[in-house]
């Protein structure tokens, strides 16, 4: 037994090192004084962060990305609430195939989604814009939101709704007084996950970007210039901490939801 658990500890140790290598190196290089991204480290500086503050193009890209991410979060959560509610509460004709189809973007290669949306937009004679990217992002985020919200709706005891109805409330009020407060943590988690995915999405955004870049498209353009790399590291560090912060908030709400409905906490994220 002992030998086996030692093997496991080593394995997990190496695995975590492998998994975290980029995430650890990112802030290391962001604070490294050298303008070349490589070892050995030469000293500590916050210069690369201050470079970010004065970069106009970057600010435009960041604003675009925020706009897209917020819109995506709201719309994919809305669509996911409807789908999750429908699939967990009602049995309807073709439910399994409809849900399978709606969840399809989760396994579809992103390049296929990018290509197909590009084709439609060009064939229809529309201009590529931030809207086209938003549409693509809603499409890929909705399945993730459905996954989160389905478990929130599934944990909901059907007799709670019936009890509310039985006690004289209307269906509409039942939704707002009983269902909504109980799935609220799931909705917050869904909003944050969609926001985070959209903020970081590159493949679709690159295909559908018109003249206005998103943050990842901007980063892609800068990767060619070695001189820009240290400040990109700083940008990456900021984004990493923003993402982790948002995820911690999402997880907090998910746990609170679990506590509220009184169900044992077993699952993990997503």
């Amino acid at each position: 037994m002992r030998g086996k658990s030692r093997f496991f500890n080593w394995f997990i140790g190496f695995f975590l090192l492998f998994l975290y290598a980029p995430a650890i190196l990112l802030p290391v290089f962001a604070f490294n004084a050298s303008s070349i991204v490589s070892f050995p480290l030469t000293g500590f500086t916050t210069e690369w962060f201050s470079v970010l503050l004065t970069n106009g193009t970057l600010h435009v890209a960041a604003r675009n990305s925020l706009l897209i991410a917020i819109t995506t979060a709201i719309f994919s959560t809305l669509l996911a609430v409807l789908a999750a509610r429908a699939s967990t509460r009602f049995s309807f004709f073709g439910r399994r195939s409809i849900m399978g189809f709606v969840m399809l973007p989760m396994v579809l290669p992103e390049i296929i989604i990018g290509v197909s949306l590009l084709v439609v937009i060009i064939q229809m004679g529309f201009e590529l814009s931030l809207w086209s990217i938003t549409m693509g992002h809603i499409l890929i985020c909705t399945p993730f939101c459905i996954a989160i919200l389905s478990s929130a709706f599934m944990n909901l005891d059907k007799s709670l709704e019936e009890a509310s109805f039985d006690l004289g409330q209307t269906r509409w009020n039942t939704f707002w007084l009983v269902i909504f407060p109980l799935v609220m943590p799931g909705i917050v988690a869904s909003l944050l996950i969609a926001f985070t995915i959209s903020l970081d999405e590159f493949i679709i955004a690159f295909f559908l970007a018109g003249t206005e870049p998103t943050l990842p498209v901007y980063i892609w353009g800068q990767l060619r210039f070695p001189a820009k790399l240290p400040s990109l590291m700083a940008l990456g560090t900021v984004l990493l901490f923003v993402s982790i912060g948002l995820l911690l908030i999402a997880d907090y709400f998910r746990r609170r939801g679990i506590r509220k409905t009184g169900i044992e906490n077993t699952g993990g994220f997503l």
Binding site: D157, S159, L160, E162, A163, S164, F165, D166, L167, G168, Q169, T170, V178, P181, L182, K260, T261, G262
Partner: peptide, 20 residues
Amino acid sequence: VPANKRPTNMVFQSYAIFPH
């Protein structure tokens, strides 16, 4: 007549106490 308009009330098997 829907359930919310009937002069009946129910005690559910799971009790259905609103957890929040």
